[in-house]
Design a protein around this nucleic acid. Sequence first.
DNA 1: CCCGATTGTCTTTTTTATAAGACATTTAGT
DNA 2: ACTAAATGTCTTATAAAAAAGACAATCGGG
Lengths: 281, 281
Amino acid sequence: MSSTMEPLKARRLYLLLREQILRGEVALDERLPSEPALAQEHGVSRVTVRRALDKLASDGMIERRPGSGTFVSGGKTSMPVVADFSNVLTHLVEMGRKTGVRLISFAYVNATPAMAEELRLDPGERLQRSVRVRLIDGQPFSYLVTHVPERIGMSYSEADLASTPLLELLERSGLVAERATQVIGATLAGPEAAGALDLDIGAALLSMTRVVFEPSGRGIEHLQALYRPDRYSFHMDLERTGADGARRWTPADAVRASEQNNENKKNTRTKRPPPQRRTKP
Amino acid sequence: MSSTMEPLKARRLYLLLREQILRGEVALDERLPSEPALAQEHGVSRVTVRRALDKLASDGMIERRPGSGTFVSGGKTSMPVVADFSNVLTHLVEMGRKTGVRLISFAYVNATPAMAEELRLDPGERLQRSVRVRLIDGQPFSYLVTHVPERIGMSYSEADLASTPLLELLERSGLVAERATQVIGATLAGPEAAGALDLDIGAALLSMTRVVFEPSGRGIEHLQALYRPDRYSFHMDLERTGADGARRWTPADAVRASEQNNENKKNTRTKRPPPQRRTKP
DNA sequence: CCCGATTGTCTTTTTTATAAGACATTTAGT
DNA sequence: ACTAAATGTCTTATAAAAAAGACAATCGGG
């Protein structure tokens, strides 16, 4: 299965160290082996080790102190902006108000066969296609490609799109969103998405595809969303209800945006999350 | 933000074409530009174009016909094994029965500070750490790293782990799982996960971190799961309930495993999904 | 204050990826 | 059967990444 397109050695080592750190195999604030040691251990040159460490440092995962060594610096400093889960979409609407939106492109296109099928429309039907980027604190965190049937898209303007969440626009114009399907997956960043999200090409992205239907069964919105996983993730709290025979997990809460953590590699000494644990009775 | 670790040209082109195909900018079964044309268009040599196309072909995204050209071959042939959403975990338990499990490693370790905090335990407490790979039809689709407090882990054997889902083992030994938190994100495959999941290093992975608590508030399971997004994804169907004033989206269904599609590059002519659309009334 | 070990920054050589082109093979159409 | 255009497979030259080593700058500890 592995093709000949082997990653470069530096990238390989980067991903290896990254995996170890994320998994906690190297504890927080612990010193990594020295560069010469890593070079020998992995059978590569020090230049290569250095490139891998450079990338880790720019990710904010390690901190390098000349003369002392390189140290693991708080891997997961994600702190929440919690929200309700039962209303995933509603939450997104509300969040749309707090965050900024950049409209990248806006046009009318013919539906591809695949798109038409997903929206339960006739193939070749005209669709309004818009590409937007959502920002939080001026930092992009999601890349959204939306397709809406032309006649529906006519009910709002291009300017509306840059300021108001789409679902709100749709309901405002009398449409009823009754059913929706969502698929959450992962993919690699292509040049477009990477550029819009200020990421390297080939970075990991959280993807969500959502199709919203009106009571008649016809689709009124097709959304392909790509998220920077370090700035956005899906959270849910579950509780077990019901007796032992018919036990169930019921959602209580979900979808939260992580406030970005790193971003500035030369910041004021990595703060690690407070221990805040509880002693046993 | 972009570091100096630029992807190679072949990889860059691969991700570019991949993005275009997934986004439907090149329709299904349509012919791509010829190799020389692509080379000129992107300012690279034909060898590089060729390497990018090789990778796309091994992903099953394109089909190359000597003398004719290269064609897009059904990008998303994912077909379901649907399940209920309200009981995400229950579903996983049931699915555990249908799929195979390979136990990769099994050991007792000291809790890292981060792990102890997530489980609300004392730092340094002994944990049972197990690494498993879940298979569906003999193909790996998830890589699971589980941490369980030692005394709890004692209640079952290593062999149990390879055959029975962990949550079932826990409840079988009298423990009550009352609360759980899940976080869904995305990450890049390191060497370990990539090897276990039969993927290239640097592939995109769906990640889920789950922590289960008993009524006392102490954690009894910490699961770090990595999924191959082409074989596993989270699905949910939502319905809008309630009146216009207090409209809500309520989940109806979720978590499904896609039956794998490609995998064998030399298979019996790519079958494309049946059109199966509906005509308007 | 010095010593040893570390990261930071060069240079030079070797290895690998890419570029450029020639030519064979397959296919669809005339 | 022939032709035009496509992929498949080479060869050789160039550009870029990696290896190997030297040396300076910084830090911590004895």
